[in-house]
Amino acid sequence: MSLAAEAFVSQIAAAEPWPENATLYQPLKEDQILLSDCASSLAVQAYLRMCGLPVQVRCRANAEYMSPSGKVPFIHVGNQVISELGPIVQFTKAKGHSLSDGLDDVQRAEMKAYMELVNNMLLTAELYIQWCDDNTAAEISRPRYSSPYSWPLNQILAYQKQWEIRRKMSAVGWAGKSLEQVYEDVSQCCQALSQRLGTQPYFFNKQPTELDALVFGHIFTILTTRLTNDELADRIKAYSNLLAFCRRIEQSYFDEQDKDGQSGSSRFSKGPSLI
């Protein structure tokens, strides 16, 4: 989105309160969604729950193509369509909902730096494992990604996606990496996060921020998603404070809210539980 358009959207958005029928769109949960999309979707859901903004989750096979940026998840609020965590955070801020207002400038810069770290390391690693590891691509990613389509479209789209991601990996210099190096990068990223978190409940002490939502989305999804092997999850399990952090967020933002009997097409779309 261009800067002018963004400014315009925020201006309009500010005028209207958060509607009851806000909807989040993501790919089909059972058969289609991949680790990286699931993580991004969960991060946005966690963020909106932390803000106390209700959102209904809808699964659509063509969610990726419905999204204005071509990335999932996206939310449909009033007549606005906004995709990805960054723009969604800005959008809610314009409506007067923010988690990072209590932070000072230094903390805010630090938060942004850690969010960049998660996007550059964890998200890129997820994409690498999904599409550049031949085993995972052949056994999980391609069949799942193409599951809504009929032959020969399923083959075309899956290989097209794989090619696109591989090109992106070359662009960021990950194409030459081995799987072992990628796991090592994930470990380093987790170590940095683990050190920053320390013994605090959230990254910036008592209050959760969008960084907490983002880290929760990725780590929770990696821990609860089955891949061809458990190496990725095992690397993360080495950091016990991150595991405890995930459980904490799951309990305070997902479990209790789901107990008050929401229907099947529910607001709860997190997948299996950690506990």
Binding site: P68, V81, I156
Partner: peptide, 24 residues
């Protein structure tokens, strides 16, 4: 025919957005 539908502009209505994507 492999058809790829998309919105012409960001301002496209949601009903058109819902039709986006690939069909055979």
């Amino acid at each position: 025919v492999w058809r790829e539908l998309g919105c012409l502009a960001r301002s496209a209505s949601f009903a058109v957005r819902e039709e986006s994507g690939h069909t055979l």
